[in-house]
């Protein structure tokens, strides 16, 4: 168990440093971009987990709303429209969504979509600013949208598989702590 945890930490640690470095690739870089950035991963999985907690229609509406608004953020990034506090908002997204999962907060679907959408805008902006510099921007965009969507589905799947509220709460708390560590500059 300890070995597994150590292996996971070793796999994830280099990603945190690389996540927002200049990107030069195509589809593979796009696919790996959200996965290698722990701040992105926890937020995406939290969206799926929260959707699973809220049930239908949030179960599919949150994973649908996120990429749509994320693309809007990406467009702003590509066009060079300034957006302040991007990294802070991304770290905050992990913490906030983690807390929503940990406390199993039930909100109206429109409000839940709104919260997820605000964070999606910042995640998309971070990806969008790196898009024009990549070797194959369209392949990179396809990769990161697909990867983001798959991470949501991982969250939804985890939410469906995990039996018992305490485990879900612990997962949420772990996500919130990770987001908090990024927010405090510890990660």
């Amino acid at each position: 168990m300890t070995r597994m945890a150590l292996l996971l930490a070793l796999l994830v640690a280099p990603g945190a440093a690389l996540a927002h470095a200049a990107t030069t690739g195509g589809l593979v870089s796009g696919l790996s971009h959200p996965v290698l950035g722990l701040d992105h991963v926890v937020a995406m999985v939290a969206v799926g987990l929260w959707g699973a907690i809220l049930g239908r229609p949030a179960l599919w509406m949150l994973p649908v709303a996120f990429p749509l608004v994320m693309a809007t953020g990406g467009v702003l990034g590509i066009l060079g429209v300034p957006l302040p506090g991007v990294e802070t908002a991304i770290a905050l997204s992990g913490m906030a969504l983690g807390l929503l999962v940990a406390f199993m907060v039930r909100l109206p679907i429109a409000l839940a979509c709104g919260i997820v959408g605000v964070f999606a805008l910042f995640h998309g902006y971070a990806h969008g600013t790196e898009l024009p510099a990549s070797a194959n921007p369209l392949a990179f965009a396809t990769g990161f949208v697909t990867s983001t969507g798959l991470l949501h589905l991982v969250g939804v799947g985890l939410g469906g598989l995990v039996r018992g509220r305490p485990v879900l709460r612990m997962l949420g708390a772990g996500i919130a702590l990770t987001g908090g560590a990024f927010l405090a500059g510890l990660a």
Binding site: W60, V64, M70, I78, L79, P132, P137, L138, V145
Partner: peptide
């Protein structure tokens, strides 16, 4: 519908990349 949302996101990015120049 989830697949369509991914296509919409990629389409919006492709459109803005075409406007911005890289495509």
């Amino acid at each position: 519908r989830i697949g369509a949302s991914w296509l919409a996101a990629i389409g919006a990015l492709a459109l803005s990349l075409t406007f911005a120049g890289p495509l």
